[in-house]
Design a protein around this nucleic acid. Structure first.
Lengths: 186, 186
DNA sequence: ACGAAAATGTTGCTTATCCGACGAGTACAC
DNA sequence: GTGTACTCGTCGGATAAGCAACATTTTCGT
């Protein structure tokens, strides 16, 4: 159906460019409009891309939002290459810091009952994939959910609080929990 | 031959986008390379545009440079809408200020024996067209050549000197000259 | 509750871009 | 001289993007 389903096409410069334009357009619109009030037409117009072309790449605006968030968060997660740290504790501290940093950059977006859950979902999904190279599937899931949940909570409950102590607390709990799980698994 | 020769095509979003990408790519490359050492391949790669597509729009890199300069200068010339001023003297002061401002922004470009003359040519051509709505053809030519010549001279002879007095002097001469010409023409 | 206006997906056809390849020209090393 | 490694223009065929139009659905004012 869509262009994206074929394989070699993912590397076509036109495809890459179009998707980039659409992601950037949505990000730009989100700066002064809430997600709910943004239409596919708005996005296509902002990206100077035909509306039909939008549907060739994404099923709807939620699909695009997911792509945008994951693309964005992937960059943040790689900062400082935290996964390379052999110690689980400092590793998670690094990852947590990046997660909070990412959420912090999106604080400017309008509070939106559609946007928040989508962001959380996408963020969790990407983080889970990110952690998979170091942790088993189920463990990655737990860590991702916990960190993202905490960050989202921080985002609009106590945005003025310093993130570092929160992350530290989370990591304490996670490290213990994961250690237990490791023991139980063997 | 090239796509650009057809008429309705000029409004095709793909065409607009491709040309924009190519202009911006050249501008970007000029920041740390001199024009002479920039190849068409470099430009196409920087713009993420196929090399063949480059040739569909521009005959060579000089053609692109011309387009880039004219596009850029057109924006600067419109600043403050100087043409709307009824008085020829203040009008020219406004235009001259914009010309010097434009040249000033391109001072960062590497000095280059190919780049300078091309820039002067394109700048003159665009300025002449710009002036045509208020002055006859020949008068526009004189004013354009004079202002651009002065600005280019200032650019690499005495870049630290304040532009305003230079412009003022130029305009004095031009206004007198044009007035004489106006009298002679009738 | 109803009609107008706008957004949504989808389609067939056109067109610009991509890609790989080609011969020709240029520079430089050996 | 010969080979290597560039860049340059140009070509034909494949494909993504543009466009106009369509029937639905959603939104919204009154």
């Amino acid at each position: 159906m869509t262009i994206a389903t074929l394989d070699p096409v993912r590397t076509d410069p036109r495809v890459i460019r179009t998707r980039k334009l659409l992601r950037e357009a949505l990000a730009s619109l989100l700066a002064d409009k809430n997600f709910e009030s943004i239409s596919v037409q708005d996005i296509a117009a902002e990206a100077t891309v035909n509306r039909a072309t939008f549907y060739a790449h994404f099923t709807d605006k939620f699909d695009l939002l997911d792509s945008m968030i994951r693309d964005d968060v992937a960059k943040h997660l790689a900062q400082g290459n935290p996964l390379s740290d052999p110690d689980a504790r400092t590793l998670l501290l690094g990852v947590g810091k990046n997660v909070f940093a990412f959420v912090g950059t999106h604080r400017r977006c309008k509070i939106d009952r559609e946007f928040e859950p989508q962001m959380q979902r996408s963020l969790e999904a990407e983080l889970k994939d990110f952690l998979l190279v170091r942790f088993p599937h189920c463990t990655s899931m737990v860590i991702a959910s916990a960190l993202v949940g905490a960050a989202m909570d921080w985002r609009y409950q106590s945005p003025n609080e310093a993130p570092a102590p929160i992350v530290s607390n989370m990591v304490d709990i996670l490290v213990d929990g994961v250690a237990q799980r490791m023991l139980a698994d063997r």
